[in-house]
Amino acid sequence: MVVRQPLTPTEQPLVQLRGIRKRFGSHEVLRGVDLDVDTGQVLCLVGASGSGKSTLLRCINHLERPDAGRVLVGGELVGYVERDGRLHELPESRIRAQRAGIGMVFQHFNLFPHLTVLENVVTAPMRVLGYSRSAAEATAHDLLARVGLAPKVDAYPRSLSGGQQQRVAIARGLAMRPRLMLFDEPTSALDPELVGEVLDVMRGLAADGMTMIVVTHEMGFAREVASQVAFMSEGLIVEQGPPQDLLVAPRHERTRAFLSKVL
């Protein structure tokens, strides 16, 4: 067991990104991103397609390995350990333990199609956290009821609508009792009439105090739920602020150009 440093300044941000850089071949996708997210905050990440939002999100749970910079969640370096002034990549088991505390919801749901809704939700808590089947199922039933899918526990994902599948995916993430939830365009693959039911679930989560980073094009959701909105362009966070400032009176030219297209 690793003894964690006590978080002396009590209001240390839950997520701290410092100088994150990532390149694919010759293309530098992230060019030194700094970002703080406080516990209980909802940060909406907006920006044009290809600006690096997904890559940034994937760096936070080390699905993508940054080329430079630091990711700290709860004051703990993600993916690395610092020894004699250098960052050494952690063994896979440690990285997996860190990921287990960070939920992630994908644009295309990525539910496991060969498992029932219930199995989708209980597999990771049982295999990763060592829950007993009865404990995992009890949690799963609670969460599925909370996202309004109690009658669908024994259904297979393919028989559900997109909105229902995404709600199962949220329940699957929550079953790991994460302290942070990452959402990558959770409603972009949905028919318009199904967007609302997913946003409702996310709104409920925010109200319960979950810390969330949400990549989205739903400006209505951002305005209503976000504590902060960050605008990303060409691998950098160009502007950040509370929604009433950033969405209403953007200071940066690029933010204005982007918002004029999506609002």
């Binding site: 997996r96 333990a97 960070i102 992630m104 597999t123 990771a124 295999r127």
Partner: peptide, 21 residues
């Protein structure tokens, strides 16, 4: 689909579990 491995990784499942299950 690669998204399957990705989702399993994000949940913290081990490589063996991801492959086998």
């Amino acid at each position: 689909d690669r998204g399957q491995t990705e989702a399993a990784n994000a949940l913290g499942l081990s490589r063996v579990d991801t492959f086998r299950r």
